[in-house]
């Protein structure tokens, strides 16, 4: 599939992405380039399910450390780094819910 649309649930990436926003995620960019810090990635992580987080840093051997914006986020601080192959897509497009200007 070229890209897939997901609805974001939860606020761990606020204010960039809020609960209810949509994103389009695609595998295609990963075929051409390495993941880099700042990329928003979608991946599957048992037992949490499909998660969306921000790449914080790339560790030795290409380990992908992901994090949310807030201190309470469930991310690599809890489940450790991901293998690059676990990442199912990079966010290529964000469709945010209209909201009051911050």
């Amino acid at each position: 599939m070229i890209f897939q649309i997901f609805k974001v649930r939860g606020a761990s990436l606020a204010p960039q992405l809020e609960d209810g926003d949509f994103v389009a995620a695609s595998r295609i960019p990963i075929l051409f380039r390495r993941l880099r810090p700042g990329d928003l990635v979608v991946f599957h992580k048992p037992p949490y399910g499909r998660l969306i987080k921000r790449v914080e840093r790339i560790g030795p051997g290409g380990q992908v450390f992901v994090a949310g914006s807030g201190a309470g986020s469930v991310d690599s601080r809890i489940f450790g780094p991901l293998a690059a192959s676990e990442v199912s897509g990079i966010v290529i497009w964000q469709i945010r819910r209209p909201r009051a200007a911050l």
Partner: peptide, 25 residues
């Protein structure tokens, strides 16, 4: 966004969770 919201109601896009401590929000 409104178009996607309507499509979501009909087809139901998959969710990607950006959850904190416990999925909550």
């Amino acid at each position: 966004y409104q178009i996607l919201e309507k499509l979501d109601r009909v087809f139901g896009f998959k969710h990607a969770k950006a959850h904190c401590d416990i999925p909550c929000g």
